[in-house]
Nucleic acid binder design. Structure first.
Lengths: 247, 247
DNA sequence: TCAACGCAAGTGTGATCACAAATCAAAAAT
DNA sequence: ATTTTTGATTTGTGATCACACTTGCGTTGA
């Protein structure tokens, strides 16, 4: 494999220039909708229209409809028989279903990561712990957005270390599906008790630091179960209150 | 909720008429590509073009490009930086990764199904066993297609009983991803030893019949591991042979 | 002889249009 | 007053086109 003169001179240039990367409009639309979904910016049951989103994102309908199609196959959105799409509604069954799947898959991912994370990577998520405390100290009220973002970064930094190109997309799909639910729980959390979310994350980091896969899985299960059981109780309470109003 | 006169007369009609269902072209293209992928009609590393598929399926490019986009997000296809799409190549790592994920998720699904399948449903998959024997008795050579179809029906009949709307799409995604690999294994199987595939299915049915979740999971793991380890050995043998030819 | 250039065919992406189906509101009928 | 009908608007779907980028092959030049 001999290199020609121009190839060699090109190598010199390549060493100084960063690849520009060509992101399509569709990709940006898709990412934007994903972000909104995971962050819970859309409410469950809300219906979305192609033209409406295209206007909001200032593009034509084409990139939007393809992005919507992709999100539908991931079950992040739902295609009604009317051919309109909506954010899937929350039901008790779905909540339990999602939690069970997340415990199963994310639990496996963190168990794998526990034996593969380098000290370097551990220190990264340890740093995130500090960032969390910082945010909590300042106590800005509208930091719910930041909180979910930080939470996401923390978890996926771990999952990325599991070394499975198959599991990670599945976890992303699960987050996409539970995003609209979680938002409700987070809001309720910051209102109600100040149960320190960081405490659970600290337990996870401690387990990972000593490569204890079982403990890490256990701590993770506790972490992700919390908002789900909270939401579950809330839903049941709401249902009870409603049936009491008109028996 | 009071019904009007015409609504009630409509109900009478509705009881006799089956809903016709409005399937879009895109849906048909998507289903067709799925079928081809799971059945292993596409070879790993094969590149696909929108216009080429559109010609083959006798439609315009529009439904095809959206179907391709959906398959790419499911990791059933791969988008190269060149913006061309191909069916993902097989590597040892990917093989192990897929098998681990399938054991995890399909194992959980069958364990759930074990406690939920009705005798009626058990008898259905028992009937499939008979169909399998029948096919094997006739010994038609080109029944590989029928074999993979029957295998798929058998497994998904079980998974459908797990009662999880979240797990099933994930399993479908996994089958989509391992489809192109499995085909190679199936072919090699029918050539090589006559290891009765039905034997493993029989074990599964037996375990499900007595609602033994652990045994069902174990039998399933043996069933799906077989083609994977077979393929794994084949790949390693090929690699060894190649490196021997030019040391 | 082989690298470099240039042209042509092929390909994905996005925009726009036409059409059918759904939705909604006002008008008409009971 | 309630139901039905009618018509206008909205919406998803598929086709077609324009554009930019890639690829492959033949030509040119050293």
């Amino acid at each position: 494999m001999q290199k020609t003169a121009t190839e060699k001179s090109n190598d010199v240039i390549a060493a100084q220039l960063a690849p520009v990367g060509r992101e399509t409009v569709q990709d940006r639309v898709y990412s934007e909708l994903r972000r909104a979904l995971i962050g819970g910016l859309f409410e469950p049951n809300q219906t979305l229209t192609i033209r409406g989103l295209a206007d909001a994102l200032v593009t034509s309908t084409m990139p939007v409809r393809e992005a919507l199609g992709r999100l539908i196959t991931e079950k992040a959105l739902e295609a009604l028989p009317n051919r309109s799409v909506r954010v899937p509604p929350i039901t008790l069954d779905r909540l339990d279903d999602l939690l069970r799947a997340r415990i199963l898959i994310e639990g496996e991912a963190i168990a794998l990561a526990a034996t593969r994370m380098t000290p370097r990577q551990i220190s990264v998520i340890e740093g995130m712990l500090g960032e969390w405390d910082e945010m909590r100290a300042l106590k800005h009220k509208k930091d719910v957005d930041h909180e979910v973002t930080l939470n996401q970064s923390f978890h996926f930094e771990i999952y990325r270390s599991c070394g499975s190109a198959v599991l990670i997309p599945m976890i992303e799909s699960l987050w996409l599906q539970s995003g609209p639910c979680i938002r409700v729980a987070i809001y309720a959390f910051s209102e109600a008790g100040e149960v320190d979310t960081a405490h659970y994350h600290r337990r996870i980091v401690a387990a990972l630091a000593v490569q204890d896969a079982a403990a890490a899985r256990e701590a993770l299960v506790a972490d992700i179960s919390r908002p789900f059981t909270f939401l579950r109780n809330k839903l049941q309470a709401d249902a009870a209150a409603k049936s009491e109003n008109r028996p």
